[in-house]
Write a protein that binds this DNA or RNA. Structure first.
Ligand SMILES: [Zn+2]
Ligand SMILES: [Zn+2]
Ligand SMILES: [Zn+2]
Ligand SMILES: [Zn+2]
Ligand SMILES: [Zn+2]
Ligand SMILES: [Zn+2]
Length: 484
DNA sequence: GAGTTTGAAACT
DNA sequence: CAGTTTCAAACTC
């Protein structure tokens, strides 16, 4: 609301924007095939970009080609605010990172910033692979892709951290206009699927408190932030601030959840250890939530707690820090609870519920660990339909290569190249729709194969006949805990 | 929608 | 590095 600036930005002329290439939107859609529902991405794109020389890394060729495409439609973006109702985005899509932006910017960035209104920057990167397709299609832009790796991000929108995650923002633009959106959910909370918008009042959206900023994207209209500086027009400030923060903590903008799986993994180190599956980089420090709510970053990111977590009374449905996914042991918890004694009613309740669920599911037994599938679904508690969760991952290969180990995600742009490679193949399924924290993702290391996850399972995995796959593969993070 | 709870981020 | 404050999201009502 208050941000006039934002509007201005949007107002900027579309034409220019178009000239530059960037995707305007990507959406996910469901497609039904033979009974099976799949989600696809829809891209609308456009843009162009151009020159970016710097990206040397990226091939320009791509860019240029695609760049050509122009789309008239895009106007939508610009529009002044969307009508009142505009919904937010519906799906999360590809991510963008500001980081990339930075890079980009050097070269010619000037324009970009302005033009772009929001978060588009990132688009480029992530989408690179897509672009290809897109360009061909130039027509309207909606291509359906089968799921893409990028989607994975979708799943985890919550994490704002992920680079990919951000994309949603981009989507937003799309969404606004796009007539097509297929799905919308009601969004009780206000958020919808993956899109989130900040409501910062005092940080000016220049601190990590701001989800938009933390995710590496600019604030967009739906954000209800006050005195927002996280806008393209303040790019300098944004970048500067980012650097500062980064200098303090190089991993500040890196994805919080690291995925690793066997496949990609290599990274590692160590064969002995099992790779664990995805885990939060720094671990959480939950004291009262038992890692059962989104207050817990591990839980929010759809990953189990690891040894690096300092949580107390961990009951993370995705895996406890000790490795056990479920709760077999009550004692521990009880004891803790007892200690506190009080507080806990609420907690206990929650716990109990969860537990029950688990049992039902059958997780209790040992083997079950692996299966963690049914989590209690925290979601349900919220009222959302229970969806499932699960799988893990965050970053698939894409990032993995670079970010995983490295610490600097920033280079998203550069990563883009990687994306190309990976993406197509990866794309397969996807995600979730709602906001569930988790995602389902799968990963394919190299490519192909992935299992599908189910994103939906939610409460009843079994119930849903449709998608069946469940988390089979998810290894649990549990035991492993790798070092850190 | 207002108000509370929560734990990360920021600050000291 | 720990303790405190600040902050905005997650949650509750
Ligand atoms: Zn903000
Ligand atoms: Zn914002
Ligand atoms: Zn903002
Ligand atoms: Zn936690
Ligand atoms: Zn944790
Ligand atoms: Zn925990």
């Amino acid at each position: 609301m208050d941000t006039p600036q934002k509007n201005q930005i949007n107002a900027v002329n579309p034409n220019s924007i178009f000239e530059k290439h960037f995707f305007s939107c990507v959406k996910l859609v469901y497609v039904t095939q033979r009974g099976l529902r799949r989600r696809c991405l829809d891209f609308e794109m456009a843009s162009v970009l151009g020159k970016n020389s710097d990206d040397n890394s990226n091939t320009d060729s791509t860019a240029s080609q695609s760049g050509r495409v122009r789309i008239a439609n895009e106007k939508r973006l610009v529009p002044t605010k969307r009508s009142s109702d505009s919904r937010k985005c519906i799906l999360p899509g590809i991510g963008l990172h500001l980081n990339a932006l930075a890079t980009l910017k050097d070269h010619n960035g000037t324009k970009n910033e302005e033009l772009s209104s929001g978060r588009q920057l990132s688009l480029l990167c992530s989408t690179s692979s897509l672009q290809i397709s897109t360009s061909q299609d130039h027509h309207h832009h909606h291509l359906a892709l089968v799921a893409v790796s990028s989607e994975r991000e979708l799943d985890l929108p919550n994490n704002g951290v992920h680079p990919a995650g951000d994309c949603s923002q981009a989507h937003e633009y799309l969404n606004q206009n796009s007539p097509k959106r297929k799905r919308r959910k009601s969004d009780p909370g206000g958020e919808t699927d993956g899109c989130k918008h900040c409501t910062c009042k005092k940080s000016k959206c220049l601190k990590l408190y701001c989800e938009c900023f933390a995710a590496g994207v600019y604030c967009i209209e739906p954000c209800s932030c006050h005195d927002c500086f996280n806008q393209a027009i303040h790019e300098d400030t944004v970048l500067q601030t980012r650097k500062q923060i980064e200098s303090r903590n190089p991993l500040a903008f890196a994805p919080k959840v690291i995925r690793s799986s066997e496949s990609v993994t290599e990274v590692g180190d160590d064969p002995n250890k099992t790779p664990a599956s995805a885990r939060h980089k720094r671990g959480c420090n939950c004291k009262k939530s038992s890692c059962l709510k989104k207050y817990c970053e591990c839980y929010q990111g759809g990953v189990g707690c690891s040894i690096s977590c300092r949580c107390e009374g961990c009951k993370n449905a995705f895996g406890r820090k000790d490795g056990s996914v479920l709760i077999e042991v009550y004692p521990e918890e009880e004891s803790e609870a007892c200690e506190k004694g009080v507080a806990e009613k609420a907690l206990q309740k929650t716990e109990i519920q969860n537990i029950e669920d688990h049992s039902d599911s059958a997780l209790v037994s040992t083997p079950s660990r692996l299966s963690r599938p049914l989590l209690p679904l925290p979601f349900s508690s919220k009222g959302k339909p229970p969806r499932s969760f699960v799988a893990t991952i965050s970053g698939s290969a894409l990032f993995a290569s670079s970010s995983q180990k490295l610490a600097k995600p920033n280079s998203v742009w550069s990563q883009s190249k990687h994306f190309q490679t990976v993406t197509d193949d990866d794309i397969r399924d996807v995600l979730r729709s709602d906001s569930s924290p988790v995602a389902c993702i799968k990963t394919s290391p190299n490519g192909k194969r992935i299992s599908s996850p189910n994103c939906d399972l939610g409460s009843s995995p079994s119930r849903r006949g449709g998608r069946k796959r469940i988390l089979q593969s998810i290894p649990s993070f549990p035991s492993l805990t790798n070092h850190q």
